[in-house]
Design a binder for these strands. Structure first.
Length: 414
RNA sequence: GUGGCUGUAGCUCAGUUGGUUAGAGCGCCUGGUUGUGGUCCAGGAGGUCGGGGGUUCGAAUCCCCUCAGCCACCCCA
């Protein structure tokens, strides 16, 4: 076995898998454009502070998952663990606030130092969408609808369920958090060690604990809805109503919380059973406080991200490759003619393969292996008549065609 | 980061209580066909049994360490 292993949690995208990833990205990009989202790309590394400040000092991502290093200039740099912070930073540093609302689509690699598992990698890829400058619930609806449409187009929507929750506005969230801390503090001894830890850092997370003992205690915890003020309730109701209008099925999950500090109001996840413990396929929410927290003007935002590898695992086979035409010259004279024909056809838009060596049998075999639809055979007999033999590789039928007519005759094999 | 399972040819796997040159199917290469693939027949190449150390006359097989994948926790995409 090769002693050269890829770095843990990374993997190669060989053509088969690359094609699937490309299909996911192109589908996402195409649909995002119909919704008015334009592609944007931010650097894959930023000053560490961009993530540390926005994701929350106590979040898991910041405390243990960031790939951080000091560059040769002494700067603290971090490989991006997610896409939203970079977009927000770009909004501020590019002075884009005066062009709001802005609608961005992005695709690219993300990095998190985690223990790898199926559907969980250290370098993984996401597509994502961000809507900036829209504080209305219709923004949430649009963003979720975009996600649903992409999943549908990829053929995976039926394998997912949309879970929806609200975290309320800042005031409601703070009030609920206080109630939770008060409640759980009375049960400190019964809570798991992990949840004790969470009480300090992110008490909402306890609601989502899978620990049996925790669940019993959680069952008696205060309900989020009781802490929601009128404005927050109204907002959530509007989002739900919008989804209903669009016939997007959803279910309330009052345990659904987000790990990142900047989320408020809507939180959602399209989840699946098909990926083991990694249920989230496409997830996001509203982050009205983020841009301001980074030092920019107060700017509402809502968006989501989706794991390309996870989507790829759900879609099965990628669309079929283009079937090439196989050029098969026999001898030096034919080689030169074949080279020229191949180039002409390629420039005319055909996909053409011409081998670099080998006897006819080997070249035919290669034509078969690459799933060519037709072989163009050029030998002395053909050249003498300024013609080529076309062999239909599916039917096995072949015919002599004048070189001048070649391009037209190949039209049916495109 | 914690716990568990796994690791034999390019791929999927077999390998009997430790015993001689580690096997199969698929794939790959060559020939049967001086210019005809996909079917068929014949032959061939390819493995330091994840890596390192140990026990033993002898290790793919037993023990320890390590790396990687997978599963659960955690977290999420």
């Amino acid at each position: 076995m090769a002693s050269l292993q890829p770095v843990r949690g990374t993997h190669d995208l060989l053509p088969d898998e690359a094609r699937r990833a490309r299909h996911v990205i192109e589908t996402g990009r195409g649909i995002a454009e119909r919704y008015g989202y334009e592609e944007a790309a931010t650097p894959i590394f930023e000053f560490s502070e961009v993530f540390a400040r926005t994701l929350g000092e106590t979040s898991d991502i910041v405390t243990k998952e960031m790939y951080t290093f000091t560059d040769k200039g002494g700067e603290q740099i971090t490989l991006r663990p997610e896409g939203t912070a970079g977009i927000a930073r770009a909004l501020i540093s590019g002075g884009l606030s005066q062009h709001l609302p802005l609608k961005f689509f992005y695709a690219g690699p993300m990095f998190r130092y985690e223990r790898p598992q199926k559907g969980r990698l250290r370098q993984f890829h996401q597509i994502g969408a961000e809507l900036l400058g829209v504080g209305e619930p219709s923004g949430d609806v649009e963003v979720i609808a975009l996600g649903a449409t992409i999943l549908e187009e990829l053929g995976v929507l039926q394998h997912t369920a949309l879970e929806l929750n609200t975290l309320g506005n800042t005031e409601s969230r703070a009030a609920y958090r206080a109630l939770l801390v008060e409640y759980f503090s009375d049960h400190l001894d019964s809570l798991s060690a992990e949840s004790n830890d969470r009480l300090e850092r992110n008490p909402l997370r306890i609601l989502d604990s899978k620990n049996e003992g925790d669940r019993e205690i959680v069952a008696g915890a205060p309900e989020f809805d009781d802490s929601l003020d009128a404005a927050s309730q109204e907002f959530f109701a509007a989002v739900c109503a919008g989804l209903d209008t669009l016939n997007i099925a959803w279910q309330r999950n009052s345990r659904l919380v987000r790990g990142l500090d900047y989320y408020c109001h809507t939180a959602f996840e399209f989840t699946t059973e098909a990926l083991g413990a990694q249920g989230a396929v496409l997830a996001g929410g509203r982050y009205d406080g983020l841009v301001e927290q980074m030092g920019g003007p107060s700017t509402p935002g809502v968006g989501w991200a989706s794991g390309i590898e996870r989507l790829s695992m759900l879609i099965g086979e990628a669309p079929a490759k283009q079937r090439p035409i196989s050029m098969i010259p026999m001898g030096d004279a034919a080689e030169a003619v074949g080279l020229r024909l191949t180039e002409d056809l390629r420039r005319a838009g055909y996909t053409v393969d011409m081998g670099y060596r080998g006897k006819m049998k080997q070249r035919m075999k290669r034509a078969n292996n690459i799933n060519a639809s037709v072989a163009v055979i050029l030998g002395d007999d053909e050249l003498a008549q300024c013609s080529a033999t076309l062999r239909d590789l599916d039917s096995g039928e072949q015919e002599l065609v004048a070189l001048d007519d070649l391009r037209d005759r190949l039209e049916q094999f495109r």
